[in-house]
Structure formats: structure tokens, C-alpha cells
């Protein structure tokens, strides 16, 4: 399947599948966030990705890059919490990195998402191990070079691996040692992104 390419319609289906997954998992995300955050992660992301779906349905962009840039812009303007600019930057930078191309390979998508992940690291000043979304995203974009399934597995493993970590960024970092033993909500929602990507690619 190495020759397969993915276009704008694929990217739109990906975002729609993320929206459905976030809506389905919103309560769980909020529950994780109430342990170490401010209990708004599920509701914030659900609102954001619902707005993304709505915008993409109204005016479907012509390229996969434009789909991601638009999605990122909508997330920044609708989420309201820190996850808006973080996910918005991930998708906007990835979309810009894809440029005007109409079709992208899995390797091309991995390169673009890697650029997005680097931008997220820059924005939040976090590195892997800080108990943030980067703990799922960083291994996931690497594994995506192998397969969509590997990307998903790496993201989920990365999210699970945040449980014993002590938070060093965001509100959870104020809790210090008390953040240990809880799975990071941002890493958990990041894993939903890669689960949705595998799901859409398998269709």
C-alpha cells in the first residue's frame, strides 16, 4: 500500500472521525482532566472539533493541506482553552507544510505532522516526558512512517506511558508529585487523532 495517496476528501473524513471520537470520549477526557487539570478538556475539544466538521462541510477546501490549515484555525478560535492553540498549531503547521499538493503519501503526511509536532513543542516549551500531548504525538508520527496501525499503537502506548510521569507543563505541573498516577488528558486526546487516522485509512 506504499503507493497509496490521500487527498482533501480523506483529510475531511479524518477530521470528521476525530470529531466523532472526541464527542464519544468527551466524558472520559473530562474525567481525566478533572484529576489533574480544570475539567474542561472533553467539552472544549468536542466544541472545537464539532465546529471544524461544520466548517469543512460548509466549504470543503481543495487540498489536504488546506483542510488541516482551516481545521487548525477553527480550533484556535473555538476551543477557548490551551488545547485550542496547541491542536490548532499542530494542524495549521502540518497543513502549511503540505503546501498546495492535492495528494499526499503516508510518508508525506508523517513529515507534515512531524513539523506540526515540532511547532507544538516550540509553542508550549514542552519536551517528551513532561506528561503532555507530545508524549503521544512524538512516537506516533515516527511510527506512522511504518504504518497507520503502528501510528495508532504508538500514540496509545505513549498516552498510557504518561501515567507514572510527573507533569512539568500546564496547570497539572502545579500539582507536582500529585500528578503522578493519572493519565494525561492531552496525550489521551492525541491518541484519538491517530486512532481516527487509522480508521479512515482502513476504509
Amino acid at each position: 500500500m506504499t503507493g497509496t495517496t490521500y487527498g482533501a476528501a480523506f483529510a475531511v473524513r479524518w477530521m470528521g472521525t476525530v470529531a466523532a471520537a472526541v464527542a464519544r470520549e468527551a466524558d472520559r477526557l473530562t474525567e481525566l482532566d478533572s484529576a489533574i487539570g480544570d475539567a474542561d478538556h472533553g467539552a472544549n475539544l468536542r466544541r472545537g472539533f464539532a465546529a471544524v466538521s461544520e466548517t469543512l462541510a460548509k466549504e470543503p477546501p481543495a487540498t489536504p493541506g488546506a483542510v488541516l490549515v482551516t481545521s487548525g484555525r477553527v480550533l484556535i478560535s473555538t476551543v477557548g482553552g490551551a488545547s485550542g492553540p496547541l491542536y490548532g498549531t499542530l494542524l495549521r503547521r502540518a497543513g502549511k507544510s503540505l503546501g498546495e499538493t492535492g495528494e499526499v503519501t503516508r510518508a508525506g503526511l508523517a513529515d507534515a505532522l512531524a513539523a506540526g509536532v515540532a511547532a507544538v513543542g516550540q509553542l508550549g516549551g514542552a519536551v517528551p516526558g513532561d506528561k503532555t500531548m507530545l508524549d503521544a504525538l512524538t512516537p506516533a508520527v515516527e511510527a506512522l512512517r511504518e504504518s497507520f496501525a503502528a501510528g495508532r499503537a504508538a500514540a496509545e502506548a505513549g498516552a498510557l506511558a504518561t501515567v507514572p510521569l510527573r507533569a512539568r507543563k500546564g496547570r497539572a505541573s502545579y500539582l507536582g508529585e500529585r500528578s503522578v498516577g493519572h493519565q494525561d488528558p492531552g496525550a489521551t486526546s492525541s491518541a484519538l487523532l491517530f486512532a481516527a487516522l487509522e480508521e479512515v485509512a482502513a476504509e
Partner: peptide, 15 residues
């Protein structure tokens, strides 16, 4: 703090 910092930085970096 929090999203106030990240939102302004994101707008300046990408938008």
C-alpha cells in the same frame, strides 16, 4: 497565564 499565553503565541507563530 494558560491559554492566554498559548493563544497569542499561536496567533503570532502561525496566523
Amino acid at each position: 497565564l494558560g491559554s492566554a499565553v498559548l493563544t497569542v503565541k499561536a496567533l503570532l507563530a502561525e496566523g
